[in-house]
Amino acid sequence: MTDSASSPVRSRSGGRAARRAARAAPLADHLRPVRAGMSGGTYHPLSDQDMQAIHNAALDALEQIGLADAPPSGVEYLTRAGGILGDDGRIRFPRALVQKVLAQANRTITLHGRDPKHDLELCGTRVHYGTAGAAVHLVDAQTREYRDCTLQDLHDAARIAHELDNIHFVQRPMVARDVTDNLEMDLNTIYACCAGTTKHVGSSVFEPGFVPEVFDLVHLIAGSEAAWRERPFMSASVCFVVPPMKFATESCEVMEALIKGGMPVLLLS
């Protein structure tokens, strides 16, 4: 009787390594648990009746009380549209006018990123998450102590937000306290954010006279004014109304100049 040669042992062709690599790989966009534009709108803390009551109260306030301190250009725009300028200098808005304008309002808006893959389609119940806050202090990661925010911190925050899938836009999260000139702070804030991310960026403009230089900067980043107007990658936050029922005059002038230049505006009050 002769011994037969044993069969050679075959090594597995990288099956375990392949499975590990598959588990470590990023999920496909459609499989990610948090994605830009996911449907929301399921949280209803107020009933339809409650919301209608708030809406009616707002219509009453606009029609009966109105708003004071509109700049001359704003008075012209608003009265031309149907607002009524009273002897007390307040502009009142007839209920029918407000309802007409609401019915005409655009229901779909795109906030562009410098990279089209970061475009945000604002419509329906789509939800997007982003940074905000304009914090003036932070806890230093090294010393664990509070200190003023700096321009470098802002840039670093934009870079971090750029890499996070669950952050879809970068609204200025902090104020660069090491830049004391207001114009320089506006310009450097925009630059620091845009240098850190190609997602949509949000910031603000301190006064009307700064707007031309802001547009010079965004045109330079975009490549031209035409390229900017085609895909405006930045929006501006404007607090245009302040208590009690007054327009913030200078902010309204900033808003007008920004709109003329093609910049989306986030209205705050």
Results as ranks from 00 to 15, higher is better:
D178H: 02
A25G: 08
T2K: 12
E256F: 12
Q171A: 00
K117C: 11
L187H: 01
G14H: 11
A18R: 15
W228K: 00
N106S: 14
H128W: 11
E213F: 10
G223H: 08
G74E: 08
L46Q: 15
P232Y: 10
M1W: 07
L267N: 03
D115L: 10
L85C: 01
P45D: 12
L266E: 03
S11E: 15
V101H: 04
T249A: 08
C194P: 00
F233L: 01
L27T: 05
S269T: 11
L111Y: 09
E207C: 05
R144S: 06
L164A: 13
L183M: 04
H162P: 02
K246V: 08
P45S: 13
I84N: 02
V241E: 08
M51I: 12
L111C: 07
D60T: 11
L62T: 06
S11R: 15
H55V: 05
T143C: 03
R107F: 03
V254A: 01
G209E: 12
I65A: 11
G40H: 12
G14Y: 12
L31N: 07
V75R: 11
V214G: 01
P243D: 13
R35K: 10
A134E: 06
V214L: 04
R107L: 07
G15Y: 12
A176H: 04
I84L: 06
R126N: 14
L138A: 09
S269K: 07
D88S: 09
V265C: 01
G196C: 08
I54Q: 13
P243G: 08
P173R: 07
D216Y: 02
N106V: 06
M263K: 00
G37C: 09
L151S: 07
D60F: 10
S224K: 09
R23W: 13
L183D: 05
D115Q: 11
I54R: 12
V218E: 04
L220S: 07
V205L: 03
E76P: 00
P26W: 15
E121W: 11
G113S: 08
G83V: 02
A21F: 11
N166R: 06
S7T: 14
G223D: 06
F247L: 09
M51E: 14
A36W: 06
C194K: 04
L138S: 02
R231H: 10
D88F: 10
F240N: 07
L154Y: 05
Y77R: 10
